[in-house]
Every structure is written in C-alpha cells, then in structure tokens.
Design a protein around this nucleic acid. Structure first.
Length: 348
DNA sequence: CAATCGTGGCC
DNA sequence: TGGCCAAGATT
C-alpha cells in the first residue's frame, strides 16, 4: 500500500525551487516574518484566472504601480481600468475587479476579509480565488483547486474520472493533503509543481518530490491524466468592422455594452457576427473594403472580420459611436481583435 | 448546469 | 493550420 504524499516533502522542494514572481513573497522571507499584501495577492489571482504567468506579469506591474492600494483602484475611472486591462482577455474580470475594489474600500474600510466565506461574496471571487487569497495572504489552511492541482491529484491518486465531473472528488483529495503549517506556501507549492514538473504533456516525473507516492507514476498513466470530457468544435462566424477616420485623424469608436463578449471595452462599430452579417455602417461615407480580413479565435468560435474603411469630413455626425481625437486614441486601449482590425485598416 | 467569456504560446 | 492549454467565475 503506497503512502499518501507528505506536504513537508513538497515544502522542502518549494523552499529550493519556488519561482520568483512579482506578487510572491519568497518562502525564506515569509518564514522570516514578511507577510504578503492581500491587495497584491488578490490582484494577481484575478489576473491569473485562465491566464499564463508570462501574460500577467506586465499587467500586474502596470496596475500595482498605477494603483498601489485597493483604495486607489476604487477611485479609478472605469474607462481607465478597462483600457489598462485591454489585451489580457476575459474582460468581466476587469469589471468585477473594479466592483470588488469599491466594495472593499467602502464596506470593508480598505482591507480584505480573511475568511473564505466572506471572500466568496466578493465580485469576481469564486471558490479558487477565495481559497488562494485566504491561504496565500493570511496563511489560512484552505485548499486551492485550480487546473494544476486537479492534474496533480488525478495523477497522485491515478483517478481516471473525467473533469469537470471529478472536481468534488479531486477537492477531497487535495483537502486531505493540505497541511496545518505553512498552508500558504503549500498552496503555491502544489501549483508550482503542476506548472513546472507535473505538466500536462511530458511530465518530468524524474524530478518530482512526490514521485514515490504517485499512483499514476507507478502505473505509467501520468501523461494521460487528467481525463477530460471531449470538447465541441468551434464554428466560424463572419463579421464586418467599420473604421471611419475623420480628416483630422480622429477615429470613430464605440463603447460595448457591459454584458456579453468584450463587455465594457472600446471597439469599432460593426455588424452582427454570424453566418451572413448585415451591413451596418455607423456613418454615411464611401466605404472601401480592405483586401485582407482579420482572423481571430475566441473561446467558443472563430471570427473572420471584414474591415471597411472610410475618410469622413469634419462636419458629418455619426449614427453610432464617438470620434476619438488623435492625441487621445491609443491602439493598445483596444482588445486584441479590435487591434487586428485597426492594423489592417489604419493605412487606408 | 451547460454555456459563455480572450488571448498567446506551443506542437 | 488548428486544437490544446493556462493560478476560473458567472449565469
């Protein structure tokens, strides 16, 4: 009978191999008494939802330099936060980030609650993030269950139950391994293990501190776990984006509604996105079609965006959207799909 | 509760 | 190229 893996063995590994990250207090400093800033822990966890560490780093630096405290962030203008988030994706996170900051500033006197149950009530904070903030920021013995931990548990216990069905069971596995001492470092250690050793493809089992306790290693099934439900294939949708440039260089843009795809972000006025998009120019003009189209893949569909451009006189009012002066317009305030359309149409 | 919600890197 | 994957939450 194989023994359960011990948290201590992982912590020893973590003390040696913890990756340096802008939001992380390294294990040595932590054990010397340095405590993490809950605001930075929360900020990083929101940004890291379904997003790679590499993609998050520069955004985290920008946000925390521009808004050093949750009170600063609470006082920011919506459009500034959305623009700063542009390119990172899943824009509901940015809207909820700001909502949450305002709740913390107004209802909690600027300090984050410690309890998992209280954190769970905050906008944009779900079971994972509540456990992450509670454990990492306050060293509470909560169990984090993210994609890394799911993979590690599936392998340690050689459980072939497909996700997401297996989630509750995997949480029980993870909970049974969570230690009362250094739970914050432990939470980060399991995730680091999943990110660097117990990887989705070609896991480096030879370097794993838990190898001798891993059922999948013993059975040779590590690489095929965790099992997942088959995914649907993505349909392709078509659309038209209208890039109107006024003779002074101002661009015609539109703020998208808060709900739905790219909610709250700036974008080019456009058609619907579907099988046969209907023409919907936002202003009367001589529209020209660019030769290439913008291709972009969202979570659940492919988009092929036809870009049309026009030059319009100063005195012509648009039916939709607002002109943004050239000294105010920033390409990088746009979500990626809109940047692609801009890159195709900016020269015309 | 299954569907929705971005993007970039990797193979 | 296209599917997979990443420190998930919301409805």
């Amino acid at each position: 009978m194989r023994e359960l893996p011990r948290a201590d063995d992982l912590l020893v590994w973590y003390d040696r191999h913890a990756r340096a990250m802008p939001w992380r207090v390294p294990p040595a400093a932590r054990q010397a008494g340095v405590t993490p800033d809950p605001y930075r822990v929360w900020m990083s966890e929101i940004m890291l939802q379904q997003t790679t560490v590499a993609a998050v780093k520069s955004y985290f630096e920008t946000f925390t330099e521009r808004w050093p405290t949750v009170t600063d962030l609470a006082g920011a203008a919506d459009e500034d936060v959305m623009a700063a988030w542009a390119g990172l994706g899943y824009y509901a996170r940015a809207r909820n980030l700001l909502k949450c900051a305002r709740v913390i500033a107004e209802d909690y006197g600027g300090s984050f609650p410690r309890e998992h149950a209280d954190l769970l009530l905050l906008p944009g904070v779900g079971p994972y993030t509540a456990a992450a903030v509670s454990s990492i920021a306050y060293d509470a013995p909560e169990t984090v269950l993210d994609g890394n931990v799911e993979r590690v548990m599936a392998r340690i216990f050689n459980d072939h139950t497909p996700l997401p069905q297996a989630k509750p069971v995997f949480h029980n596995y993870a909970s049974s391994l969570t230690p009362p001492l250094r739970p914050g470092d432990y939470a980060q250690a399991v995730m680091d293990l999943g990110a660097t050793i117990c990887t989705p493809k070609n896991p480096a089992c030879g370097l794993c501190p838990w190898r001798s306790n891993c059922a999948a290693w013993a059975e040779g099934t590590a690489a095929e776990l965790p099992k997942k439900m088959p995914k649907k294939r993505k349909p392709t949708r078509l659309g038209i984006a209208y890039l109107a440039k006024r003779v002074d260089g101002a661009w015609l843009l539109e703020r998208r509604p808060d709900k739905g795809l790219l909610g709250g972000m700036l974008g080019w006025p456009g058609s619907d996105w579907g099988d046969a998009p209907t023409e919907a120019p936002p202003i009367r003009a001589q529209w020209k079609e660019t030769t290439a189209e913008a291709r972009h893949t969202f979570t659940h569909f492919h988009l092929r965006l036809t870009v049309k451009t026009a030059l319009v006189p100063m005195d012509r009012a648009p039916d939709r959207g607002e002109f943004v002066e050239p000294n105010v317009f920033e390409r990088d305030d746009l979500p990626t799909v809109m940047r692609k359309a801009y890159d195709l149409g900016k020269g015309s």
